[in-house]
């Protein structure tokens, strides 16, 4: 039985859905690992039931006198201190913008090896499976470590509930922070849309979308699916969509349950970002488009006919 910590990410005070897969992984193959969930300066009581439903028996609220939110180095130092305090065998988190920034700092502080963006982890074996070469290969990496550090690709591990009794603990590490890295402002994106990397379903529009206003058609369909809307690089480069919507090697890596690619040819660099999706659907006018060789279900047709019909069928 191992002792595993998970850094929980909150959005507007709520636990992001993507944390549940990480908690599931933290319980280990046998399912009997002791799981500590770490939150920072949060209302831990308010999220206790959600976290314990996925197996967290300790919910540790890390508090600090300094401005935790403004300093990734202070967050990392505090988390590293907590990992020591609770004698963890492993510490997991999400491969999200926050997770990857904090975990790499933790790994550097603790001088431990780390595996980024795992699609599966084996805590007992201290191994993880991750993409190498932009999704073309899977690498199994084994760590020779004191504590196993790993980030997990959002949605890559299916969450499974396993309710336990949980206690809430407060931990105030005394850490020094003389880092000059300071977050001075957070600019909202204008839209409060679901982040692509967290979305359980994604509808993507490629170059075939032809104009930015045509993304409305995809948004209508996405709304019914609880989906986020993505774009190919060709669509981004043509100015139809902002870079924050780009899926692929130079954009975001996503792993939703369902990925619907509309008017996307299926280039390797696009696949690099969505290959580990559970189900991929391609819609393309060209029956020979490469996407059809690499997806699960295909529809040969014009997105301007197929997408509205799909939206209708979902209503």
């Amino acid at each position: 039985m191992a002792k595993t910590g998970v850094l929980i990410e909150l959005g507007d005070g709520k636990v992001k859905e993507t944390n549940f897969g990480v908690l599931t992984a933290a319980r280990g193959a046998s399912g009997d690992n002791e799981v500590c969930a770490f939150v920072m300066n949060a209302d831990a009581e308010a999220i206790k039931s959600e976290l314990s439903a996925y197996g967290a028996s300790k919910i540790v609220n890390i508090t600090s006198s300094g401005d935790l939110g403004a300093s990734p180095d202070l967050q990392a130092a505090s988390l590293a201190a907590a990992a020591k305090e609770y004698g963890l065998d492993a510490l997991l988190g999400l491969f999200s913008a926050t997770g990857r920034d904090i975990f790499a700092r933790v790994a550097a502080i603790m001088d431990e090896p780390m595996i980024s963006d795992c699609i599966s982890v084996d805590i007992d074996g201290k191994t993880g499976v991750k993409s190498h070469f932009s999704g073309k290969t899977f690498a199994t990496i084994k760590l020779d470590c004191g504590i196993m550090l790993a980030t997990v690709r959002p949605n890559a591990i299916e969450p499974a509930e396993a309710s336990v009794d949980a206690e809430v603990i407060s931990f105030s590490p005394s850490v020094e922070n003389n880092s000059t890295v300071k977050i001075i402002e957070v600019k909202k994106g204008g839209t409060e849309k679901l982040d692509l990397t967290e979305a359980p379903v994604i509808v993507t529009g490629g170059r075939a979308i032809k104009a930015s206003e045509n993304y409305k058609m995809l948004e209508e369909c996405a709304a019914l699916l609880g989906a986020a809307v993505g774009a190919s690089r060709a669509a981004v480069d043509a100015g139809y969509a902002p870079h924050s919507m780009q899926v692929g090697q130079t954009g975001k890596t996503v792993s939703p349950k369902l990925y619907i690619a509309c008017g996307v040819s299926g280039a390797v660099q696009h696949f690099a970002g969505m290959k580990t999706s559970k189900i991929i659907v391609g819609i393309n006018t060209d029956k020979d488009a490469p996407i059809f060789a690499k997806c699960d279900y295909g529809i040969v047709g014009d997105i301007f006919e197929v997408v509205p019909a799909l939206t209708e069928a979902l209503r």
Binding site: G135, F138, K142, L143, D144, F292, A293, D296, I299
Partner: peptide
Amino acid sequence: KSVLVKLEATPERSGAKMLEGSVT
């Protein structure tokens, strides 16, 4: 301290099941 144990090709989908009939 991080050792590459195995490198394997990502399992590829074997090709889409193409749906048939009218758009509807």
